[in-house]
């Protein structure tokens, strides 16, 4: 799976580095000083690399926890995100990461303890509040978990800071670490969905919708709180039929009572990311639709999206109360 591993010299002897390297005994190993030497140069083609991404093992030095962009959240305040990994093992054509980074290599920061310290510090500073920490912003939270063990590490951390909440956002079915742990009331495992036909066409490598629902059922049965993320929602031919079928499939199989939250978001992409991705995938119909610029973001035309949003909202609200529904906007 990983044919090349770049290793920062300063973490070459870190036990986690050694553990990860052992999983890929045939991989070509290349030493570097800083991950940015490999990851940041502009003369790289994300699309070409995505066919055979390398793994970069690195140490993060600062900015372990960052405020989320406005409009990102599920009702709590304040909201933060953190990324132990840059880039995703899936290949969703609408994903902003394609425009954000020059490289498609996976960067894994192995100093999990530093992430944990900063999260604990923020949680203690805001003892009277309920800060939310979102994992899965610059990567999928669980897809690489069998290799990294990061979420497993974080479950122990969040079990000690009950005022803080963790959202594990994912499209993955790698839930073993959760099934092996005692459910935590301050952790929500949030699964992203688009309809089957859309997913097959634009979400390469992502587990089938049915498999993700099965994973959610297993988690619910064990007592974990789960969330649903319909983001991005992109209008397309016959979306009514596909979304209706998706909602029916999900909500009829899950226990609505223990669904923590549902969120909806439209397609929005910083203009410079959009431009870069369109250059990478000039033949992709999604990037050749009529778009509007709203506050520096490229969005699908509001009128077209509005109908779909209203349709889906109505469908969702037939299954859950409005208090559980959130909107991620610009």
């Amino acid at each position: 799976m990983v044919a090349t591993i770049y290793i920062e010299g300063q973490i070459a002897d870190h036990p986690r580095t050694e553990d990860i390297i052992r999983r890929f005994p045939k991989a070509e190993r290349i030493m570097c000083e800083r991950y940015s030497q490999v990851f940041n140069p502009k003369a790289q083609n994300f699309r070409a690399q995505k066919q055979n991404p390398a793994l970069i093992l690195a140490k993060k030095h600062k900015g372990f926890v960052l405020p989320t962009p406005p409009g990102y959240g599920v009702g709590g305040q304040p909201n933060y995100y953190f990324s132990h990994m840059l880039n995703c093992i899936y290949d969703c054509r609408y994903c902003f990461l394609q425009g954000m980074y020059s490289s498609a290599h996976y960067v894994v920061f192995v100093n999990y303890e530093d992430f944990a310290s900063e999260i604990i510090e923020y949680a203690e500073q805001q003892k009277d509040e309920s800060p939310w920490f979102f994992s899965g912003y610059d990567c999928d939270s669980l897809a690489f978990e069998p290799v990294t063990g990061f979420i497993n590490h974080m479950l122990n951390v969040f079990s000690e800071i009950p005022n803080a909440h963790l959202e594990i956002r994912t499209k993955s079915t790698q839930i073993r670490c959760l099934l092996n742990s005692k459910p935590l009331s301050n952790v929500v495992v949030a699964f992203s969905f688009t309809p089957d036909d859309f997913s097959r066409r634009l979400e390469f490598g992502v587990p089938a919708v049915d498999k993700r629902i099965m994973a959610m059922q297993q988690l619910q049965q064990q007592g974990w709180s789960v969330g649903l993320r319909f983001d991005p929602m992109i209008s397309y031919h016959n979306y009514q039929h596909s979304y209706r079928a998706l909602f029916e499939k999900i909500f009829s199989r899950l226990d609505s009572e223990t669904i923590h939250s549902v969120s909806m978001g439209g397609f929005r992409m910083p203009k410079n990311f959009f431009k870069k991705i369109k250059k990478l995938y000039p033949e992709e119909p999604l990037y050749n639709l009529a778009m509007e610029d709203i506050q520096g973001m490229r969005c699908l035309s509001v009128s077209a999206e509005q109908d779909m949003f209203e349709f889906c909202k109505k469908q969702i609200l037939s299954w859950i109360p409005e208090t559980k529904l959130y909107y991620c906007d610009i």
Partner: peptide, 20 residues
């Protein structure tokens, strides 16, 4: 070549292999 270092500047460049 998977990494090149200029001995006089220590600048490193990492060519990318996409061939399996």
């Amino acid at each position: 070549v998977n990494k090149t270092i200029d001995s006089s500047t220590s600048k490193a460049i990492f060519p990318v292999n996409v061939i399996r």
